[in-house]
């Protein structure tokens, strides 16, 4: 565990807390893409299958349980909560996310480290995570105005990816640890998807104005 990896995990955790805080305090999920949240739930459930087969550390186990349960809770809230679900922007959130699931499943069956159920699921989850933010970014772009908490949620998610890249570079030099190239390539793609968002986020932060994305 190094400082970049820890910062990455913490910003990931903060992003989820920010999202829960938004839903809890405003009793609203406007601006939040259910599709992206469903994709994250699928990502965590398929990636953390090793929860029942391998033990790495208490930290690792706790974080995995937190990520799986929080993502399922968020999906439940947007779909079923009697107040929250009314604010869901259904007509703006039309991204065909199951196509991403299908494409990533095919890719995982072709490109993986080892042909085992767990390893193919792991590769699938890495690919899916890389593109899972797309429905959210499309939704934000369509709605134009981004409320503060939603903006911060996406910002922290992007920061988490950036820290993970620094972590891989650090591990490469300090431990001669080669991060799997599947993770590296997907991680870089995933971080790049945030570049545009980051640009507008920093401009609005610098000008102390509300975050607005161009149509």
């Amino acid at each position: 565990m190094n400082v970049f990896r820890f910062a990455g995990d913490m910003t990931h955790l903060i992003s989820i807390l920010v999202l829960l805080l938004k839903i809890y305090t405003t009793k609203s999920c406007s601006g939040i893409s259910l599709k992206t949240q469903e994709l994250y739930a699928v990502v965590f459930v398929t990636r953390y299958l090793d929860l029942v087969t391998d033990f790495i550390s208490v930290y690792n186990t706790v974080m995995k349980v937190v990520f799986i349960s929080s993502s399922l809770a968020i999906v439940w809230c947007i779909r079923r909560h009697k107040v929250v679900r009314r604010s869901y922007d259904k007509e703006l959130d039309t991204f065909r996310h199951w196509l991403l699931v299908g494409a990533c499943a095919v890719l995982a069956l072709v490109v993986h480290e080892k042909f085992s159920f767990q390893e193919v699921c792991w590769a699938f989850s890495i690919y899916l995570e890389a593109v899972a933010i797309l429905p959210q970014l499309v939704l934000l772009q369509r709605s134009g105005n981004v409320d503060n908490l939603t903006g911060q949620y996406v910002f922290f998610l992007g920061a988490y990816r950036a820290f993970y890249i620094l972590n891989w570079i650090y591990r490469y030099y300090s431990e001669q640890h080669f991060t799997r190239w599947i993770s590296c390539v997907s991680g870089i793609v995933q971080t790049a998807l945030y570049a545009d968002f980051f640009y507008y986020y920093f401009i609005s932060w610098k000008n102390n104005s509300k975050l607005q994305l161009p149509a």
Binding site: D9, D50, I56, N60, K64, F67, Y164
Partner: peptide, 10 residues
């Protein structure tokens, strides 16, 4: 080795 395909990152 055991660590070969162990995923220690989240």
């Amino acid at each position: 080795p055991l660590g070969n395909l162990l995923h220690d990152e989240l």
